[in-house]
Amino acid sequence: MAVLQQLIFALVLGATYGLIAVGLTMVYGILKILHVAHAGIYALGAYIALSVLQHLTPNFWGALAIAMLTTGLAGVLIYRGVYYYTLRRSRIVPLIVSIGIFTAMNELFRLVAGPYQHSFPAKPGLPTLITPYFVITSKQLLILILTAAFLIALYLILNRTKVGLAWQACSQDLEMAGAMGVNVDWAVALNFFLGSALAGAAGVLMALYRNMVYPTMGHVVAYKAFVVVVLGGFGSVRGCILAGLLLGVVETFLGSLEWFEFPRDAIAFLVLILVLMFRPKGLFGRL
């Protein structure tokens, strides 16, 4: 029973890791830049949903939709307003710019909404599943269902639509894709929109799960999502989701052991070092 219950915790945790990292891996796949500000987008999603809940509507779904739309647009803004002008420079330039944006976003959240943690006043309206073997609370159920829905939708977009095809072309060779008639600018902007909207959704779901929104909530996410991206094999969406789930399972299993006192957030890096030593293209990478 205990094992099944732990598996539920692991799935929920892993699902959120995957959801955050998938946008990052999409950006990396096409532009080959490390988009650190993605973690700021994650926190932005939580703040937008919070202010919608406080000022507009107590409806969770409305808040989620507005947060995803806003974070999607914010992602496009970051691309078109900033990254766009750095793409022809050394890769270190967009990286540093990205760190700058992330830091600025953190401080902006603090200045606008204050340094304190806010509680997240939403009820998802789903039942709590109680079985003899495990319990899934309504929030956990919501995270699992929504993540699955988002990822299935993403899979369909990637594989069944023209946009998906354009992204695949762009990720293979940006200039060649452009030469072959792909509107690269639009393809990349849409890519940012979708990836950022998913990160925003992840932020809303975590705010709900932990009942907490605060300026630095993206900090751990900022580096852990990179680990997931690397483990998943830079730019592979499927690998990224598998890596997120795997990380969730490893963290949860080790965390449940009484004698294991290594910090949770260090586990990801330990795994990262091992993988880079023995399988530098990532666990699920094709490269």
């Binding site: 205990a2 219950q5 732990q6 915790f9 692991a10 945790l13 963290e251 949860t252 299993f253 965390g255 449940s256 052991l257 009484e258 949770r264």
Partner: peptide, 8 residues
């Protein structure tokens, strides 16, 4: 996240 350690 404390759920796993709290389970133990």
């Amino acid at each position: 996240e404390f759920r796993e350690v709290l389970s133990s």
